[in-house]
Every structure is written in C-alpha cells, then in structure tokens.
Design a protein around this nucleic acid. Structure first.
Lengths: 224, 224
DNA sequence: CGACGGGTTGATCCAATTCAATAATCGTGG
DNA sequence: CCACGATTATTGAATTGGATCAACCCGTCG
C-alpha cells in the first residue's frame, strides 16, 4: 500500500534535480529543526525517519527504500520535523522545493502528482495508526514483514528473502513494541514455520500464514 | 500543533466554494470507498475520521472541529480511504478538488498553501504515532485533553471547560485504549484534582499537572 | 584478544484488557 | 410528559500480553 514514485515518475522529475547526495550509514540526511529546502528521492539505500518526544523517547515513523520520496514533512513549517538517518550507505537526489513549487504551478499534472504523493503519505499513516492502535504484537510483526516483502518485490528484489537493515530496537520503535518482544515474536514465527530468521536475514516461508495472523485469525487457528 | 486553516485563509478560499452541506449527527460526510470529489471546510460542528481493518476493527484517526479541512486522504487514489462521521449536527463548505487544483496552478501562493495543509497533516500524524507507539494511558489522555483544550481556545471557546462530543469508546479508539481504561483514567485525573468530569462535560483544573504527565513525570511526582 | 553493540531467551511484574455488574442518560413513541 | 429500551459511562475483580530485569551468546572491530 505505501508507495513512493514509479521509475517513470522519477524520470519525469529528473529535470528538477539539482544534485545527488551520498549519506554514509549512521549519518543523517537531515534532522528535526533543520531548515527545509528540498525533497529527496532515494536512488539507493535504506533510511529511517523518527521523531523525538520532549522527554527523549524516539519513535521511528517510517523506513524508506529506493524510489521513495522523503522530506515532505518540512513543507508545513519550513523546518523539518523529524530526523532521517541512513541505515546503510545511501544516495539521494536533491530536488529543491522551490523548483517543485514552480513546476507544479506550470504543469497542472505535476501539481496533481505531487499532491497525490503527499496524500498517499497521509493514507499510509492511517494504516500505521490502525496497526499501532489496535493490533497485537504478532499482528504488527506479520504486517511489517509482509509490507517489507511487498516493497522489495515491487523493486525487483526477492519477496521471500531479504535483509533487515534496521535493528530489533528500531523495528520495535516503529511497531510500538520493545526489542525483546520483536525478538521473541520473530522466534515464534520461526518456530511455527512461517519464516526463517538468522539475525538480520529473513526468509518468508508462509505468506498466507502471515496474512492470516494480520487479519486477526489467532496463530492457533482452531478448526471448528 | 494540529491546525487547519485560519479564518483569513478560509476567506481566501471562499471563491472556490461550490456549496454548503449539512450533515446530521451520526450521518457520514463520506465513507471509505466513496469517489473523491471535494475537500471540505468545516463551518460548524464536530466530526470523526476513522479507518476500518479488513476484520472490522475501527481506528479513529482524528476528530475535527470548525475551521479544519477534511477529505485530503482522497487525493491519493481518487477514492476516500476513511469514513468521516458527524458527531453533532455539522455544516461544511464543499470545495471541489478540481477548482483547488486549478487555483493552485494559477496562484503559486495557493499552491504552497495547500501543500502546507497536507504537510501539516503528515506532521500531526507523526505526533499521533509517538503517542500511540510510546506513551502510557495517562500520558495519552493528558495529551488528548490538552490538545482539545488548545483547539477550543484558538477558536474562541473556553480552554478550561468544554464538552466531549465523542464517546469514551471513540476516545479509546483514537488513543489506542479500551473505553474502560479511558473512563478509569479520567476518574483518576478527576480524583487527583487535574480535571473535573461529569459525563461529557470536562473542566481542566490543572493544565500544568496535565503537561507534567504528558512529558513523562509520573503522577506522583516525588520530591527528591 | 577483549570490549562492545546487537540479539536471544528466561523469570517476573505490571499496566491495560477482559469480564461483569450497575448506574446514568438519551431518544422515542404512546 | 413520562415510561421504556437502548446506548453510554462507571467501577470492581480477575486475567494476560507485553514490559522489565537479567543472564548469556555471537560477531566484529580496534
């Protein structure tokens, strides 16, 4: 469900790009409070967005991969409202917001396109809120794995085997769980033959089983 | 933090408005799946947005009051992705999206303005995710009450005394809690002289106390 | 090699849910 | 206007899912 731009769309925006930028693993693309100047299209790599509460609790709000656009949070107040950190060496295209605005005014099509991008982010977050507000640990993790799987697939990678670039703690923060819970649930999934886990490497064995978990059917689906 | 448009901004958009529409308490402004045609500016009233999971769990994603804009979720797929239901008799201005698009293309200022509206919604949801992902029941409710208080104030109503238009179950859904928990925490706040509650009527007595709770200081702030 | 960050797993604890009973309020139609 | 059923709210007791605390393992890097 949560998508950025298609390759074709990225081509369309190519003319707006001012530069490329490389961010090394662990380094920020930008931080909350930084002046908002550009939107970024990810060429290659993997990042996380997170917000901080006044008392220092971190909440990961999203993970990003190639083809996705980031930075739109900054439009609201001309200042970024979250941190974006590279979880592996990453390369992004810098698209100055001024150019986007100008292009949107000139071409109604661009305008619609960009508004759709923002709206899609809103819709995506609705899904997240449903997850955070009403799902159990197992459901959250199953949904998370299926989402990653689907995104990898749509990028031409394997949908059944991939590497988690983030730590258990980061997954936990994203899903509103503690890292121990993430670890436990992954172990349980592994034990139940739904996935195979080896540290950061994950293999999805039973997609349907995971789907069943997401939609509420408890693990031990009793046959009535 | 979460705002719609100022009155001045609404005036600016006045020319785009095609009609007014009244929705009676309990009736939908639109439902998930409805074709997206317009954005709505609330003249008067109170509504909730909610999404439904495949297995029927409802998650309230927002409450809306006068001056706020709703419907932007529909831009993404030309179809609304959530239900919006009036919690009291409500009147909205209907602003056809086509006109908004046209206006945005013509006036770069409108364009920026509308994009800010969308971005603000994204930023607001980040705050919600922080709440849902990492706060305790008491912190969630304190944050919720302070937020309502602030919004009422900025509309010229009392910031210390207001009526909750939604049920405990709806508050619970919004905050990721059960209705009993909401009721209990409100009772506790009442007992601790932070608020006075009488069914839907709430009076904020100790704003600072509520703020302290939101930022993690436990209720029983021990003096060290 | 030792230290350190990341991961797993077990034992215990606790905040919030669930189940349940009761009360207050609302809306509707006679 | 009042009575009645339905919805909404409160409160208590028991339960539980996930958090917390803690020990340990593994791989990597200086």
């Amino acid at each position: 469900m949560p998508l950025g731009l298609s390759l074709r769309d990225i081509d369309r925006l190519e003319e707006l790009i001012s530069a490329r930028r490389r961010i090394r693993r662990g380094e920020p693309l930008f931080r909350a409070g930084d002046r908002f100047e550009a939107i970024y299209a990810i060429r290659l790599g993997f990042l996380k967005s997170s917000v901080m509460s006044s008392d220092g609790r971190e909440q990961v709000t999203n993970f990003h991969m190639s083809g996705e656009m980031i930075g739109m949070d900054g439009i609201a107040n001309e200042v970024h409202s979250c941190d974006v950190i590279a979880l592996e060496d990453t390369e992004v295209c810098v698209i100055p917001y001024e150019r986007i605005l100008a292009a949107c005014s000139e071409v109604e099509d661009y305008n619609l396109h960009f508004q759709k991008l923002l709206s899609r982010e809103i819709v995506r977050q609705h899904g997240l809120m449903l997850l955070l507000g009403s799902m159990h640990a197992e459901e959250r993790l199953a949904a998370f794995l299926l989402n990653l799987s689907q995104r990898f697939e749509s990028r031409g990678y394997s949908r059944s085997e991939f590497v988690l670039r983030m730590t258990r703690a980061e997954i936990g923060s994203y899903l509103g769980l503690k890292l121990e819970t993430v670890s436990r649930v992954l172990s349980r999934f592994s034990h139940d033959q739904l996935i195979a886990v080896n540290q950061k490497h994950v293999q999805i064995i039973d997609t349907e089983g995971l789907r069943a978990i997401v939609s509420g059917q408890s693990t031990v689906t009793e046959s009535i």
